[in-house]
């Protein structure tokens, strides 16, 4: 079972490495969205410091949502997904593997890029630290929850827009606690409580989201 997990993660990472342009689109989307805000709002550093948590988290939400389309779509088109549904290994593990690989390719780069962009927003070191930790806890949860939406909209017309309508309301708790952690740290209150809630959301979605995604895949691929 674990070898199936490893094999699938390795396969997806290999596929992603062969198409590197796909890999960078999500990251560049994140960078561009975050860089657009100072242009729209003005370069006042005090304002930027204030809005940074919200901007970063909303950008992360949108970037993660944009990447969802590719999560199952390619496997669905070439039939690999049906093989996964028929495989003797539990679908839970396979979905978890797909989501893990997806997060490594689209989520982790955002986490690593965030502190660099945070410097552009003149954020303090401890706020940057809280940002990285909150993104590290939050983006996997986003990928896991988003997988449900991606599985439900598999092969539908206008799937991309639809996914945003389904998934964004479900993303709201992650957004609230994620940006809350950074804000609380920046204002000196300490983001411990928010980070704990974020961790709880991650654990819960780790347990339940793959079940829901598996059910959704079975509905969509039947």
């Amino acid at each position: 079972m674990f070898s199936a997990f490893k094999t699938l993660v390795g396969r997806d990472l290999l596929l992603a490495m062969r198409r590197r342009s796909d890999l960078f689109t999500t990251l560049f989307f994140f960078v561009i969205v975050v860089s657009l805000f100072p242009l729209g709002i003005g370069p006042e550093l005090n304002t930027l410091r204030l809005i940074a948590p919200g901007v970063f988290w909303v950008a992360a939400l949108l970037a993660s949502m944009l990447a969802l389309e590719r999560l199952f779509a390619i496997d669905y088109e070439d039939g690999a997904l049906e093989q996964m549904l028929l495989a003797p290994q539990p679908l839970f593990i396979l979905v978890l593997a797909k989501v893990t690989a997806h997060w490594l390719v689209t989520g982790l780069p955002l986490v690593l890029m965030a502190p660099l962009l945070g410097l552009q927003y003149d954020m303090a070191t401890d706020a940057l630290m809280a940002m990285v930790i909150s993104l590290l806890l939050g983006t996997p949860a986003l990928s896991l929850i988003g997988a449900i939406g991606a599985a439900l909209t598999l092969g539908l017309r206008g799937g991309g827009v639809l996914v945003s309508l389904l998934v964004l309301p479900l993303y709201i708790p992650v957004l609230i606690f994620g940006s809350g952690a950074v804000e609380a740290t920046a204002s000196g209150l300490g983001g411990q409580g928010h980070l704990s809630m974020l961790g709880a959301i991650l654990v819960l979605s780790l347990l339940f989201a793959p079940i829901a995604s598996s059910a959704a895949l079975r509905i969509s691929a039947e």
């Binding site: 449900i148 439900l152 389904l166 479900l170 829901a212 959704a216 509905i219 969509s220």
Partner: peptide
């Protein structure tokens, strides 16, 4: 699909 979404 709708039922699953409602439950989530």
């Amino acid at each position: 699909a709708g039922a699953l979404l409602v439950l989530v």
